[in-house]
Nucleic acid binder design. Structure first.
Lengths: 351, 351
DNA sequence: GTTAGCACTCTTTATCTCTGAGTGCTAATT
DNA sequence: AATTAGCACTCAGAGATAAAGAGTGCTAAC
């Protein structure tokens, strides 16, 4: 493809991203050294090739999905973050907080920086283990099942029984769980396995069955990826979107899930009408993975209009993901370092 | 005030509630036995008295805040729920679930029945006790504080420390909490008290301070009333509202809190522009309390346009609140009954 | 005190015109 | 052969104008 044509396409997308209005041939003259007539001819061809389109006969051009695709894949020039900018971004993160708060602060920062909605999808690493599971009575016939995984995730589920458990029943069950479930990979909790426990309960079986059901649900919830959307306001007030669509989307957020599964381990950019079925027309979703201790721990994402400022926002997103990855690993590293130190101290005695 | 005038006011509100359009004198003729001219005269007076207003000169009348106020206080006739309707409402409740799920199901049902947003505000009864508090290590330098109250509320907080606790430190702290905090009213957890614990920690003081801080925060969160809004979609799509206002409101939901504090122990109806400062113009908030074991446990509410179907929706709201109260007390009652039975069995021996 | 009749007001909707931005095509230029 | 200037043409959007309709307030009759 002609290099001038590419330049024109790039100029159209750049202009359209800032103005939101169809771009005419005259506006392009500022970017490309050619007359408006020449540019018009080229634009007509770009339209034939499917990269541009006209809202109506006598309007300027706007990019098509293919146009955007070409733009983000090869044309776009990503901004380089200056040291100052990096410091500003760092300042928006809760660096010393828990993993969840750290990621949340990045998500919040993104909504402010980009005026888009942002998403945090955290997945429970596949091989995480159950490090604690406990049943706690909290009231008459009310019990809480508490579960903690090796990667520090904690969750509980309240459960109401038809009868109170006797002290022995509770102790038996609690002990059974401690002995048999702790240390086990959480993905191993299956209906089958629950059924096995059920039979192992012997005479307590009937009474404990509802608890086992909830235990199963709890394990499922622990492994389910947890998706949090932020900055809904930005979607609702964005004039590129159809409000009705946005409202429907917000009402049923399950739709996003497929864009944030962890099978992708790179920066990912998708446009609503390519992969067809996404509810919000004219939207694009960008997401980048972050890791903890070397394995993917989730994705940080952005949902906005197709005419999003890719050059600027992608670096933000990547910087945050990398920073989170570094911080989470720094901690791991620091911990190892401390462990070693501790060991040395112990070995060396208390001199 | 003239009884015919009241009838006319009532008719205007009734009509306006179903149509959403300003109501003219002719439409009123179906409700009041008088000519349109007479009605016009009366309406002009009602306007002078501040119960009605005209959007513009040649339009019908709509009620003012005072008009609505008079309507809901004295004019409105509440629908009586038939047995069938009651059964239908019952069917929408998760009756056998936990308290939280039960109340949530009522809230969800309300959004569907009324096309309004619904609110659940659950307060922690003032005199509830800490029935369990525990510190659990969940990873390197990561600890979870777990707290359960006598009324079955459970909550945890993750806390990252600068150093790992030794086994002794942890055990000491855990034991101290168990001995000193369990059984104590949760409202007694004050900064002062935390300071006392801090000094009691002796040499462990420095290490444990961050945990104490989180413990304090956790206790505060436990007592804070928890407000959940549902059916935002209904607000966004309601044409009586200004969308911008709704979006701002949803973005900052703290505003609702004051309408749901438990100082009111009855059905409460407020209109946005009376108590002035509520963000959504033209809205009304209705709420009714529900009790658990005889004491107020929260409020169930509805946020909708001012021209809400009061006659129909207030009975819904009241029915749900009463039903929840009954169910929560039934449980309590049942529990007491069981306790007594148990006691009898024990006393009577195992004959 | 009530009502019929009527002129008047004001919103809403449709139709029309005007303007301007931007195009596509043709013919001239490099 | 590629580029450019020039020009007629198209179409959305903004006003302007007109017609329709709903509802009022007032007057005069009942």
């Amino acid at each position: 493809m002609d290099s001038r044509k590419l330049k024109i396409l790039q100029a159209v997308v750049d202009e359209y991203i800032v103005s939101g209005e169809p771009v005419g041939s005259k506006a392009i003259m500022a970017h490309v050294k050619a007359s408006s007539a020449t540019i018009r001819n080229e634009m007509a061809e770009l339209e034939k090739q499917g990269y541009l389109e006209q809202p109506h006969t006598s309007a300027g051009r706007i990019p098509t999905y293919n146009g955007y695709r070409l733009y983000v894949d090869t044309l776009m020039e990503r901004d380089q973050l200056s040291e100052e900018e990096k410091r500003a971004l760092d300042a928006m993160l809760d660096e010393s907080a828990t993993e969840e708060e750290l990621v949340n602060s990045a998500s919040l920062a993104l909504t402010q920086l980009t005026q888009c909605a942002s998403v945090v999808a955290s997945s429970t690493p596949k091989f995480s283990l159950i490090s604690k599971v406990e049943v706690i009575p909290t009231g008459k016939r009310m019990y809480v099942i508490l579960m903690i995984t090796s990667n520090g995730k904690i969750k509980n589920k309240v459960c109401r029984l038809e009868f109170d458990l006797t002290h022995e029943q509770l102790e038996f069950f609690d002990k059974y769980l401690a002995e048999n479930l702790q240390g086990m990979p959480i993905d191993d909790v299956s209906e089958e396995m629950i059924e096995n426990i059920r039979t192992a309960m012997g005479t307590y079986m009937v009474t404990l069955t509802p608890l086992l059901g909830e235990l199963f649900n709890l394990a499922k919830e622990m492994t389910a990826q947890d998706i949090k959307l932020r900055g809904e306001k930005n979607l609702l007030t964005c004039k590129d979107f159809d409000q009705g669509e946005i409202i429907d989307f917000l009402d049923n957020q399950k739709e996003i899930e497929k864009f944030f599964n962890d099978s992708f381990s790179d920066l990912q950019i998708s446009f609503s009408s390519e992969g067809d079925s996404f509810a919000i027309h004219n939207s694009s979703i960008i997401s980048a993975p972050f890791k903890k201790d070397g394995v993917q721990a989730g994705r940080l994402g952005l949902i906005g209009p197709m005419r999003i400022n890719y050059s600027k926002f992608i670096p933000y997103l990547e910087y945050f993901s990398q920073r989170i990855t570094t911080l989470l690993s720094e901690r791991a590293g620091e911990e190892e370092r401390l462990e070693i130190e501790e060991k040395n101290t112990t070995e060396g005695g208390n001199s």
